[in-house]
């Protein structure tokens, strides 16, 4: 299977998994507009390569490796969408398909340059959150500040946006995206690197998220919270 096709499958599985928990063959077929038989075949190949856990008749879930790959492609896809929309002003209905074709050929270097030029956007034009990059940085100043040295190395742990934590879940701050004023504002309130936080709840209708940090509770605007990435500790309280 061509790598391009493989990545498309992983992206679709990630999307469906987020909605339904498990990606059924029929759902994948519908999403990718192909026959269910080809999906079964593709899932077999992906399972062989170690990207998915595939159970015939039930569906597929991503492995750690598959998830990382899918996230990477998704990030590129959404960055490209921002670029096509904000910079090139391509018409709304075409940007998704355009980005789908371009995402597979984007190099790491170009991805970084794109992210820098777009000033580390938080969301794609359709409103989906853009994942954190996997460079070893704790904030964007390492890339955006011209005086700063170029960051080297890649992260080991997987970062998740604070907004996708479950109520009661604990996590540690790992990366805050955005310009230095946002980072400074959050840091001053106690959200320094490696500080443990506990997710309390989300307000309804994409309202602010409430987190507990250093014995205080903070309500943070959803758009600001989009910039906070954490490594989950896995413990559930209460």
């Amino acid at each position: 299977m061509a790598s391009e096709q493989l990545e498309e499958y992983l992206e679709s599985i990630l999307d469906i998994e987020e909605m339904d928990g498990i990606a059924k063959t029929s759902a994948i077929a519908k999403c990718m507009k192909v026959a269910p038989a080809s999906v079964t075949e593709a899932l077999q190949t992906l399972a062989d390569k170690g990207y998915v856990h595939y159970q015939p008749y039930k569906g597929a879930t991503l492995t750690g490796l598959g998830r990382e790959m899918a996230r990477k492609v998704k990030r590129r896809h959404r960055l490209l969408e921002v670029f096509l929309n904000d910079v090139l002003h391509i018409s709304q209905e075409n940007i998704h398909d355009e980005a789908c074709r371009m995402e597979h050929t984007l190099s790491e270097e170009t991805e970084c340059a794109l992210c820098k030029m777009l000033k580390a956007p938080a969301r794609c034009p359709h409103g989906s959150l853009i994942e954190a990059c996997d460079r070893q940085v704790e904030s964007c100043s390492a890339c955006l500040d011209e005086n700063a040295p170029d960051p080297s190395g890649t992260r080991d742990e997987t970062l998740i946006p604070v907004t996708s934590l479950a109520p009661g879940q604990k996590a540690k701050i790992a990366f805050i995206r955005g310009d230095s004023s946002v980072v400074q504002r959050l840091t001053d309130l106690g959200l320094t690197m490696r500080t443990e936080i506990q997710f309390v709840r989300k307000a309804p209708l994409l309202g602010p998220v409430e987190i507990a940090v250093r014995k205080t509770r903070l309500a943070i605007d959803h758009a600001i919270a989009d910039h906070i990435f954490v490594t989950a500790s896995g413990e559930q309280a209460g």
């Binding site: 704790e138 904030s139 700063a148 400074q184």
Partner: peptide, 25 residues
């Protein structure tokens, strides 16, 4: 001071302002 800040940023990978906030915390 600017040069020192860049050195600090290189060590920590975050802006000097947040490094100092981190130190205070």
């Amino acid at each position: 001071a600017r040069a020192f800040a860049v050195e600090l940023e290189k060590i920590h990978g975050e802006p000097a302002g947040t490094i100092l906030s981190g130190e205070r915390y």
